[in-house]
Amino acid sequence: MTTSLTDRYVAATVRHVAGRHRQEIERELRSSIADDVEARVELGESPEDAEYAALTELGDPDHLATRYADRSTVLIGPGVYPGYKRALGFAFLTILPITYLVNGIGRWVKHANAGDAIFGPLGVALTAAVYVFAGVTLLYVLVDRFGTDDGDHDSEDDKWTPARLPFGDTRRSTTWAEVGAGAVLGVLLIVALFVQRAMPVTTAGGARVPILDPGLDSFWIYYFIALVVFGVGLAVLNLRLVKWTVPTAVLGSVLVLAATVPLAVLFWQAKVLNPALGNETLATQGSWVSWLAIAVLVLGTVAVLVKTWRHRTTEGGTTT
């Protein structure tokens, strides 16, 4: 049968085409292929060779179908790719260390074994990495398909003006990607605070207790949740303003300090992790664990403050 190859080719092409245009495309494609085959046969090719050559020239039916569909088959287009890359990096840098540390502490509490506490969480962190990767990718695929936000620009209707140009070689202080990732992280953090209460860990002694000190439940947990909400709100505001202004920079710094200073004090007093976990080091005031936590907090705080104020001074230096 000389038509079987064409039948298969046409079927493979229209398989991907939506119903309404399917018949029309099929009919037209058959006619065009037949024209090509006829022309080749007239030049002396055998019908089989002519059909084979005509279909070869048309190429991969999937590619042809894509062109008929007039739709991009890339998951993440160039418009949102930079944001995607940043969001992925940001999510990895924040969520993975937290997952690793929380899981490590949990294991240490349970088995009091340093090796297990260091290497055990690797699997969990890897799983988390896969989930983060899939989640962020899916989010950006949806943004690319349905979003009106063209990457770094605001999704407002108002026209672009030169005032929106970034300053010098620095990026705008906050991007949608960072705000989005920050908001997701904030929500995850809040969820995690409640989940750890609902899902206690088993200690070496066999008791089931939450990881965090129940003493935090009356006030501090809500205090930190409020700060997270404020922080996300400020980030959104900052996005509108394009750059840090003095008031927002001061407000941002106050928020950061309001979160980290009490947290550092709580760590030093060993009031963050549940003393009922039964690990002596964790329950001791001023132990090396609390100093480590404080050191991490100080580094994070300094990094955030430097970022905030550096953007401020860049802006101050360029205005005349």
Binding site: I25, S32, E57, L58, G59, L64, R67, Y68
Partner: peptide, 12 residues
Amino acid sequence: APANTLYPLLRR
């Protein structure tokens, strides 16, 4: 103009 570009182009 390759055929697999031209035919979809005509429809468009």
